Measured scan of single mutants.
Amino acid sequence: SSGAIIYTVELKRYGGPLGITISGTEEPFDPIIISSLTKGGLAERTGAIHIGDRILAINSSSLKGKPLSEAIHLLQMAGETVTLKIKKQTD
């Protein structure tokens, strides 16, 4: 049976990049997913974020019904501590 787990990851960026690339579309209900991780970057080092994971919220702002451009804007405005709500498929 296919299921999913949902969890929250807190990234402290200390002025540096998060080390993630996200992808999606401008269709508001398409998923926003992690499309790549910078090798040795902040997100990869947590061990908790993987390519293909879906981002449900950024700093408690839900991405439900929001296009990719809004998600990118939220990441850019997120500040030093970025909290990502992640949904991972478990097959």
Rank of each mutant, 00 (worst) to 15 (best):
I32N: 01
L42M: 13
S23V: 15
S61C: 13
A57P: 01
I20L: 15
S61W: 14
I22L: 12
P31Y: 13
I22Y: 00
Q76E: 12
I22V: 09
K64H: 13
V9W: 05
A57H: 04
P31T: 05
T38F: 06
G65S: 08
P17L: 05
D53V: 00
G41R: 01
P31K: 10
L37W: 02
N59H: 03
T25W: 01
R54D: 05
I58K: 01
T21D: 05
G19Q: 02
G16S: 12
V9C: 03
T8P: 04
A43W: 02
A4F: 15
K12N: 11
L42R: 14
T21V: 10
Y14V: 15
S69R: 09
K66E: 05
T25E: 07
T46L: 08
A78P: 09
S62F: 14
Y7H: 15
S36Q: 15
S1Y: 14
V9L: 08
P67M: 04
K66R: 13
E10M: 08
I6F: 06
Q76D: 12
E26F: 02
F29W: 13
S2D: 05
L37D: 01
P31A: 09
P28Q: 06
T25V: 10
K64F: 10
E10F: 04
P17M: 07
S60W: 04
D30V: 06
M77E: 14
P17F: 05
L68W: 00
G52V: 03
K66A: 08
I55S: 00
G15L: 13
M77L: 11
I33P: 00
T8F: 04
E44W: 06
A43N: 00
I5D: 10
I58S: 00
G24D: 10
I20A: 03
G15E: 15
G19C: 00
G15D: 10
G16N: 09
L84W: 15
K39P: 13
S23L: 03
K39D: 05
E27S: 11
K66I: 10
S35R: 08
A78Q: 09
S36F: 05
S61V: 12
A57T: 10
L68H: 03
S36E: 08
L42T: 15
G3S: 14
S69E: 11
P31D: 04
G19W: 00
T38S: 13
G19M: 06
T38R: 05
S35A: 08
S2H: 06
D53L: 00
T25R: 08
T8G: 02
S60R: 08
I34C: 10
Q76S: 11
S1C: 06
Y14M: 15
I22W: 00
I20N: 01
S1E: 07
A57E: 12
P31C: 15
T21I: 06
T46D: 05
A57F: 04
T21R: 13
P67N: 09
V9N: 02
T8Q: 04
P17E: 15
T21F: 02
L68C: 09
M77R: 14
P67E: 04
L42F: 08
D53R: 02
G19F: 01
E70Q: 11
S35H: 09
G40W: 02
G40S: 06
T8K: 01
E27M: 07
I55D: 02
G24N: 06
L56F: 05
H50N: 11
V9F: 06
I33M: 13
G65M: 05
L42S: 10
E70Y: 08
I58Q: 00
S35P: 01
P31V: 11
G3E: 14
R45D: 02
L11F: 09
L42W: 06
I34F: 02
A43Y: 00
N59E: 03
A4H: 14
A4P: 15
R54C: 12
L42A: 12
K64A: 14
T21W: 01
S2W: 10
P67V: 09
G19H: 01
K64Y: 10
D30K: 09
G24M: 10
G79R: 15
G24P: 03
E70F: 12
L18T: 03
R45N: 11
S2N: 06
P28V: 08
A43Q: 03
R13A: 15
I32T: 03
K12M: 05
E70H: 11
S35D: 11
S69N: 06
Y14H: 12
G24H: 09
I58T: 00
P31L: 01
I6Y: 14
G40L: 03
G47A: 08
I55F: 02
R13N: 11
I20E: 11
L68D: 02
R13V: 09
I33H: 13
G16A: 10
P28D: 12
E44H: 10
G52K: 01
A78M: 07
G16H: 06
A4R: 13
A43R: 00
N59I: 02
G47N: 10
L68E: 03
E10V: 11
D53M: 02
I58P: 00
T81P: 12
L68V: 10
I6K: 08
K12C: 05
D30R: 07
R45P: 03
I34T: 00
G65V: 01
G41C: 11
Y7S: 12
I20D: 01
I5A: 09
L75S: 15
G47C: 08
Y7K: 15
L42E: 09
K66Y: 07
I32R: 03
K66H: 04
I33T: 13
G41Y: 04
P67G: 13
G24C: 04
G3V: 09
D53N: 00
L18A: 03
V9S: 00
P17Y: 04
D53T: 01
G24K: 12
I22M: 08
Q76G: 10
S60M: 07
G65F: 05
S61H: 09
N59P: 02
S36V: 02
G15K: 13
I32A: 00
T83I: 14
D30S: 12
Q76K: 12
Y14P: 10
L37M: 15
T46K: 05
G52Q: 04
T25H: 04
G41E: 08
P67R: 13
K12L: 05
G15N: 12
E27V: 07
L56E: 08
D30N: 07
S60H: 09
E27Y: 13
L37P: 00
A78T: 05
S36M: 08
R13C: 08
I5E: 11
P28Y: 05
K39F: 04
H73R: 14
E70G: 06
S60I: 03
L68N: 00
G52E: 02
S35W: 09
D30P: 04
L68G: 04
G65H: 14
P28T: 07
K12P: 06
R45Y: 02
G52D: 00
E10A: 03
F29E: 10
G41V: 02
R13Y: 05
A57C: 09
G47H: 06
A43S: 05
G16L: 05
I33A: 12
D30G: 13
Q76A: 13
I20H: 04
E26P: 05
R54F: 07
A43H: 04
L18E: 03
G16I: 03
P31F: 03
E70R: 13
G16R: 07
L37G: 05
G16C: 04
L68K: 11
P31Q: 13
D53C: 02
I22T: 03
I6W: 06
G65K: 07
K64M: 06
I20F: 14
F29R: 12
S1V: 15
V9H: 05
